[in-house]
Design a protein around this nucleic acid. Structure first.
Lengths: 209, 209
DNA sequence: CCAAAAATTAACCAATTGGTTAAACCTTAT
DNA sequence: ATAAGGTTTAACCAATTGGTTAATTTTTGG
């Protein structure tokens, strides 16, 4: 049993990995409070005591899982945000990859949001990675485009929050959106698939001078 | 003890009301799983057995609180969405009142979203009000404006999801947004106050033909 | 004033929680 | 083969959970 920062090497089939996978599944869907060690043990197909053998306590296990989730999510966002690229292309790529990641990991955003709200201290002291995405370059790029008259004046901080909101929220609030729009799961699925294109068009339209 | 649908009359200072208020506070912040009857009793300043005297079980108490929250939220949205009004004015009012409600009840949106995801069956069978907001009229109005060439073509379902997302998400993801944008609580507060105007401007700009 | 009813409490209960312990079960290197 | 190491398990523990019971206090109506 090694002391890693973000869990055992994925892909292997060791007991340690089976426990981590089970914990990842249970925690990401039910959060810290809603999950029990017994359920994680059952899902991993092992005795409850083995959980404490590999990961000392529920808190430690939770911390590892949460850190792995956060690290992956943060690095994904950073990758897109910090590349050099014309603004329109950057926005296109950002929306595309961002929605792509979310639709392949639908339970992650809600996990992050609700757990960070329920245990803020734990997250900010232990779990959140140190090197967060730095949107400074993006902000400067937006200001430059405004100064050049190529886009409408807008506060860059609000623009980025607009974009993130439109990408994330429909997945987080999916059940509510479904009932509001009167869609069944099939219709909802195609609706969410359309969003990449729709959000992109709307953002670019909103930026026209 | 009467059997009401959405809890006792607010404002009164009866024990029943004190319990309901305490439960409202605890449940809305910690959710069903994260809350205990003991904590609710403590916050109400009474014995734990009294909770079961007035509300038979934790489930029943939770159901009443959740139903009260949902009913209030749904009726608030309905009020704005179903009035007859020119489209631009309707959008302005919708964003204004929607953000207004949320900033006066910051814990409610996250409660609804995360609880509906954790206990979907309970919500859709018992808690959600029957008469939800019907956005049909709004959709027709948007289509009419498009046909008249007064706004850019857009699928009305996506438009409304755009708007709701930009209104709700910044409050739900507030801690994350704060760290991403590098803002302290004070800066974050003024940032959120600006959103009514910023979202309105961005939506209207995105709709220009 | 006083008995009946309602409100409130302390004590208790079974079940579940996270966590521990000591024994049993491999694997493996000599 | 066997001693030693790590791995896995059943049994157990104290604390907390939602919930109940019976007794006590407070209110109320005649």
């Amino acid at each position: 049993m090694a002391k890693r920062e973000t869990g055992p090497e994925p892909g292997s089939d060791t007991t340690e990995q089976k426990i981590f996978d089970a914990a990842h599944e249970v925690f990401s869907q039910k959060g810290m409070d809603g999950s029990t060690m017994q359920e994680i043990a059952d899902r991993a197909g092992i005795n409850k005591a083995l959980l404490h053998y590999y990961y000392r306590s529920k808190d430690k296990l939770y911390e590892m899982v949460a850190r792995a989730i956060l690290t992956k999510a943060v690095s994904a966002v950073r990758g897109v945000l910090e590349v050099e690229m014309p603004l329109e292309e950057k926005i296109r790529r950002f929306i595309e990859t961002y929605i792509g990641i979310i639709s392949r990991n639908t339970s992650i955003p809600l996990f992050i949001i609700s757990e960070i709200n329920k245990h803020p201290d734990r997250f900010f002291s232990n779990i959140l990675p140190q090197d967060l995405p730095k949107p400074h370059a993006f902000f400067q790029q937006v200001e430059a485009e405004i100064a050049a008259g190529r886009i409408r004046p807008i506060k860059p901080q609000h623009l980025i929050v607009h974009i993130i909101s439109m990408c994330v929220f429909p997945f987080v609030g999916k059940p509510l959106m479904a009932v509001l729009l009167g869609m069944n799961p099939g219709e909802m699925k195609t609706f969410l698939k359309e969003r990449t294109e729709e959000v992109t068009q709307f953002v670019l339209a909103g930026l026209r001078p």
